[in-house]
Design a protein around this nucleic acid. Structure first.
Lengths: 149, 149
DNA sequence: TATAATAATGATAATGATTATCATTATTAT
DNA sequence: ATAATAATGATAATCATTATCATTATTATA
């Protein structure tokens, strides 16, 4: 995954939130920064750890709910049953996840666009075959990450 | 998805469980039957509904835990945050899920093997590129099901 | 600049899904 | 038969998440 431009994120997010009378407070900025620095989605517990003493849990959860409402972040319900949060695709780009079944960490991967278009057409076809209006796909790859090998 | 042979399941499951000194009781059989009749994974709540009065929640959850331990069923953490249970791949075969974002139901789909092998090689390649030992992949397709159109 | 209106905070309580406990009952093995 | 083992079901405990609400901060208006 290519490194994101946090300032650009802040600008875009500020714009989006101000339309909705939602304030981009320090706590919310802190959440966004943690998510943009991370190379994978983070759980509420992990975010809380990153901000111990500064963001109480209740505020953290509320910030997450509001940022999700405003479509700044999305929730990802991981292969291991942990709910994790990540920046929305319009900020981070479409990507998939490498889920380590040993340590439980989740890392983002962008597929080469040839692969991505393969998946896309495949998903379309499956939708047709099953008379299902496919809108989106979620591909998680489970395995063992480098550190756990 | 092709219809499964419940009797064959029972035989295979009986064998597997007896090795482990785990009994294949009526309650557990009932869970397996519901799962094999369903054309998609079911949540604990849905299973409880299917057996109201006959299986108390505590027993249901324990049965699910034990069947998972014995690798008869697996949990699927769906795109909508609901935990659902399904027969393990060695019984049901490898498949994917159509998740309706409108009504929340989840339906199984087996991909044509050409598609499946495309995904397989693609996943292998991505693993190599990211120095990640890919073991399994989970492809969920989100969209609108036939009944919700 | 005051002041009213609106939104955010943080402590705490409530919820809901799941897990643990434990006495009772059923099943298997000696 | 009887001892050993496992399953049941009612109940309580846990854990993540959500709701409540009084307080505080921010924005908008006079």
């Amino acid at each position: 995954m290519n490194k994101p431009d946090i300032d650009a994120f802040h600008t875009a997010i500020t714009a989006r939130l101000s339309c909705r009378k939602v304030r981009y407070t320090l706590g919310r900025k802190a959440v966004v920064e943690s998510l943009s620095k991370s190379n994978g989605p983070l759980s509420a517990a992990e975010l809380a750890d990153l901000h111990t003493g500064t963001i109480p849990l209740s505020s953290l959860y509320r910030s997450l709910a509001i940022l999700e409402d405003s479509e700044i972040i999305t929730r990802h319900f991981g292969a291991n049953g942990v709910t994790r949060y990540e920046l929305a695709e319009w900020l981070l780009g479409h990507h998939h996840h490498l889920v380590c079944t040993s340590c439980g960490t989740v890392e983002d991967v962008s597929l080469p666009s040839s692969y991505e278009s393969q998946i896309h057409t495949l998903v379309e076809e499956v939708g047709k075959l099953s008379s299902f209006q496919a809108k989106n796909h979620i591909l998680d790859i489970e395995g063992i990450c480098l550190r756990c090998t």
